[in-house]
Amino acid sequence: MKVKTTVNGQVYERETVPYKTLLHFIREEIGLTGTKEGCAAGECGACTVILNGKPVNSCLVLAVEANDAVIETVEGEGAGNELSDLQAAFERHHATQCGFCTPGMLMSIRDLLRRHPKPTVEQIKAGIEGNFCRCTGYVQVIEAVLDATGQSAKKGELKHVS
């Protein structure tokens, strides 16, 4: 069956099978592999994309459900080769380590910032609660979001004992 979607402003029309998930459709049929699969069960959030304005675990959505949908993925977060303010803040604050959760994490935060342009720490934690990160311990992610939203450019400090 045919599925037609708009991903990051580009229209894609692909033949697909009814059981294909949106995640696999995006990765395999469209060829955008930034969005990752971590558990295939809707638990880890690595596959988060924004579907018609709402963040979803794309492993739990069928491609056919996304017919005529507007989808945003990590590849649309920056402009061309330029990082978005959020991505640039992630870079400054060491908010990515292995990078595998990062694309999904960025999408959840993009959605959060639309709802709360200046989120509190508690709102940030709640906003990324569905995105597991095994590397960073989330602190530098939270600091990056505060910086990207103009609330605190202060870098977390590694304190030296003299």
């Binding site: 930034g34 969005t35 993925t73 920056g78 990082l83 991505q87 870079e91 990078g99």
Partner: peptide, 21 residues
């Protein structure tokens, strides 16, 4: 010092290629 990771842009834009990609 605390310079950013060499590869951070690759990871932040979804360009970094993992085996599954």
């Amino acid at each position: 010092q605390g310079p950013a990771r060499l590869e951070s842009k690759q990871k932040l834009t979804g360009q970094a290629t993992y085996v599954a990609d």
